[in-house]
Amino acid sequence: MQSTEKISILEQFYIACTKPRQYKKLLNVKKWKVAIFTLLMGLVITLLGPVMDLAGFAVSVGGPRNFVMNRLPAFELKDGQLKLERAVDFNLGALHISADSNKKSVGADDFDDKYSDEVHFSKNNMVVKTSVMGQTITKNFSTMKNVTFTNQDMANMLPLVYFLIFVSLLFVYAGIVLQYLFYCLLISWLVSLNMKTRNQPMAFGKIFQMSIYARVPCELIGTIGLTAGISFFTGIIWIMIGYLVSYQLMMMGLVERKAKE
């Protein structure tokens, strides 16, 4: 097979998205280049997803400071209790946020399966569900009786908020890359089993390398659809479709490769 070590990142991306029957050309790409491609894909997904959501939200509300001071209802956290001028319920991209100080408390029962990430506030506590960390976090305001926090305090803390958002996005990016590799690992396992049943065993490392490229189209479509607010791309049906499409793309490349050999 002709060496493909000089294939650029853009060429790899083009083949991954449009020419599955040429995936065999990508099997000779050096491992470090495949690693760079994977990291860049994670960056693209992060930019098209969470970063785009944040940017779109900031523009729609006239900027973070305007949102805090004029669009967000007046609130005060004092003596371990939260008071809100009125209840709020909105989405920040894929993140669902609600707050109602008429509720005494919130818990896991307030979560909605159609959202992967949620934050709920009540008079006495808050609860967070995050897909990146894969856990639920509860914070009782009774542990913050010496804290007073209002809209103005939040506005004053915006530089710190920007920094925390940046740090959070780094964790989100790492989570996206790990999730990407996990999906590739699962698809590779299924393809490996298929190739064995065909009496055409293939090194698992090569199958895994091919899966990184086969996963690209569905990841991009799903990310763009989710950013556009289409709930279909958060459901189990889309996850199954993504697996099946990636699996089929890999088989297209593998079958042709075996046929020529």
Rank of each mutant, 00 (worst) to 15 (best):
W238G: 02
Q152I: 12
K196S: 14
G205C: 06
L48V: 08
M157G: 07
K145T: 05
K78M: 09
L47Q: 08
V127A: 09
D153W: 03
E256K: 12
V119G: 11
F233Y: 15
K123Y: 00
R198W: 15
P64N: 05
L185H: 11
H96P: 06
T4D: 10
Y247Q: 08
L193W: 02
M210T: 03
I241Q: 01
S116D: 09
L160N: 06
L92N: 06
M240R: 05
S122H: 04
K206C: 04
A58W: 11
L164Y: 12
D53L: 02
L158I: 14
L185G: 13
N91G: 01
A58Y: 09
M1H: 06
Q200H: 10
I239R: 11
T38V: 15
C17G: 01
L170Y: 14
A228L: 14
M154C: 09
L39C: 11
L186Q: 04
L170I: 15
D113Q: 13
I15D: 03
Q248A: 10
V147W: 12
V167D: 08
G175T: 10
S101D: 12
K196L: 12
M133Q: 14
M133C: 08
S192N: 14
V106H: 11
E118L: 10
N140L: 03
P50N: 03
F204M: 15
M126G: 08
S188K: 02
K103F: 02
F37Y: 13
I224G: 01
A108G: 00
E256L: 08
E76V: 12
Y173D: 06
I187G: 00
Y23I: 04
V51C: 10
H120N: 13
C17E: 01
D117G: 00
A99N: 05
F111N: 07
M157Q: 14
L54V: 12
Y247F: 11
T138F: 06
V167N: 08
A259F: 04
Y243D: 05
Y183K: 12
K19P: 02
N156Y: 13
S116W: 00
F171S: 15
G93E: 14
L186W: 04
A174Y: 15
L186E: 10
M250V: 03
M41K: 05
D153G: 10
